[in-house]
Computed example of a mutant assay.
Amino acid sequence: MHDEFLATLGDATQREKLASILTWIQSHFPHLEPVVKWNQPMFLDHGTFIIGFSVSKQHIAVAPEVAAMKQFELSIQEAGYKATSNLFRIKWHDAISWDLLEQIISFNIEDKRAVTSFWR
């Protein structure tokens, strides 16, 4: 599902970095459904949003919703990522904090297990 989106990225380095994140998520959370909505690759669990990504010239934006951003605010800062209330940014040259991604995704899966809407 994400392959079509990845093919739209002209920069091979950017495409490979985002592909590594999406592939990692699929391998660690195989029950999550990969989709593209609003031109953004994302993962759903029982129809509810878990995490999404967008790309810019400077970075990958990681959007796990506000509740997860609040829960992991300090960890995001410690990883060296810039953040807003809705997302944090991984610059193309930054290392990926796999532990942080795993914690955020696991938190959203558990926190949203009874959620029936797309967003919180």
Rank of each mutant, 00 (worst) to 15 (best):
H2T: 10
D3T: 14
F5I: 01
L6R: 06
T8N: 11
T8C: 05
L9F: 00
G10R: 08
D11C: 09
D11A: 01
A12M: 03
T13Q: 13
Q14A: 08
Q14K: 15
R15V: 05
R15M: 04
K17I: 07
L18D: 10
L18I: 15
L18N: 12
A19E: 10
A19D: 06
S20F: 01
I21R: 11
I21Q: 11
T23L: 11
T23V: 08
T23M: 01
W24C: 04
Q26S: 15
S27P: 00
H28N: 15
H31D: 12
L32A: 03
P34Q: 08
V35S: 10
V35N: 06
K37V: 03
K37P: 06
K37N: 05
K37L: 12
W38M: 08
W38I: 03
N39L: 11
Q40W: 02
Q40M: 15
Q40P: 02
M42K: 12
F43T: 05
F43D: 04
F43K: 06
L44S: 06
H46Q: 13
T48R: 15
F49T: 03
F49P: 00
I50L: 02
I51K: 01
I51L: 01
I51A: 00
I51N: 04
G52Y: 07
G52C: 09
F53Y: 14
F53S: 04
F53H: 04
S54Q: 05
S54F: 09
S54M: 04
V55C: 12
S56P: 11
S56I: 04
K57A: 12
Q58I: 07
H59D: 06
I60K: 07
I60H: 08
A61P: 03
A61K: 10
A63R: 11
A63G: 09
P64Q: 10
P64N: 12
E65M: 13
E65Q: 15
E65L: 12
V66G: 01
V66N: 13
A67R: 10
M69K: 08
M69F: 06
K70V: 14
Q71M: 15
F72K: 14
F72D: 10
L74V: 11
Q77T: 14
Q77C: 10
E78W: 10
A79N: 05
Y81H: 13
Y81K: 09
Y81F: 14
K82C: 02
K82L: 09
K82N: 05
K82Q: 13
A83F: 11
T84I: 08
N86C: 01
L87Q: 09
L87K: 13
F88Y: 11
R89E: 09
K91Q: 12
K91D: 10
W92M: 04
W92D: 06
H93G: 01
H93C: 01
H93V: 11
D94G: 03
A95K: 14
I96C: 07
D99N: 13
L100S: 03
L101R: 00
Q103W: 10
Q103M: 14
Q103H: 13
I104S: 00
I104Y: 03
I105A: 03
I105Q: 02
I105D: 02
S106P: 05
S106R: 04
F107S: 02
F107M: 05
N108A: 03
I109C: 07
I109M: 14
E110V: 12
E110N: 15
E110L: 14
D111W: 09
D111I: 02
D111K: 14
D111A: 15
K112E: 00
R113T: 10
A114E: 15
A114W: 05
V115I: 12
T116E: 15
S117I: 02
F118M: 09
W119I: 08
